[in-house]
């Protein structure tokens, strides 16, 4: 019997004002709860404007993980950062829709480059608005 004393944490990297994390393991429930908390802390501390979550290694996203991804996006938005989920596998997208989850309010991009581009555009638009005001 394996004992899970401490759920391992998903590392969060910072590039400029963007936080980047890659989910590379079969996500245990506790792990994504921890991630939610860690990420909120990091956004507040680092004043990050964007969060990029790479899920290309995930072969299953069930309704719980889907809901957590939506929650993370919502929390980040309230903390003034935009979230983009990148790298979703086609089979995962099909399954999510069949499951009845359309991940409303969650922005997605096909890969990290496009995700970064979305966040960059967001940040510069906001800067533009501030400049006009």
């Amino acid at each position: 019997m394996t004992h899970y004393l401490e759920p391992s944490r998903i590392p969060i990297f910072q590039i400029g004002d963007c936080l980047l994390l890659t989910i590379q393991v079969d996500l245990e429930d506790r792990m994504i709860m921890t991630l939610k908390d860690d990420l909120a802390e990091r956004i507040a501390k680092s004043h990050a404007k964007g969060v990029l979550i790479d899920i290309s290694a995930l072969d299953v996203v069930d309704s719980f993980i889907g809901r957590m991804l939506a929650n993370i996006s919502a929390i980040a938005r309230i903390l003034d950062a935009s979230t983009v989920i990148v790298g979703m596998r086609p089979a995962v997208a099909i399954t999510l829709v069949e499951l009845g989850m359309s991940l409303q309010g969650v922005r997605t991009a096909l890969d990290v480059d496009r995700g970064m581009e979305l966040i960059r555009r967001d940040t510069s638009e906001e800067a533009g608005r501030l400049h006009e005001a």
């Binding site: 072969d59 299953v60 996203v61 069930d62 309704s63 719980f64 596998r89 086609p90 089979a91 995962v92 099909i94 399954t95 069949e98 499951l99």
Partner: peptide, 17 residues
Amino acid sequence: SKIETTRMVTAASELAR
């Protein structure tokens, strides 16, 4: 197939929870 596997494993996850 990949898609059938994803469907079944997702269902397994929902039911186990």
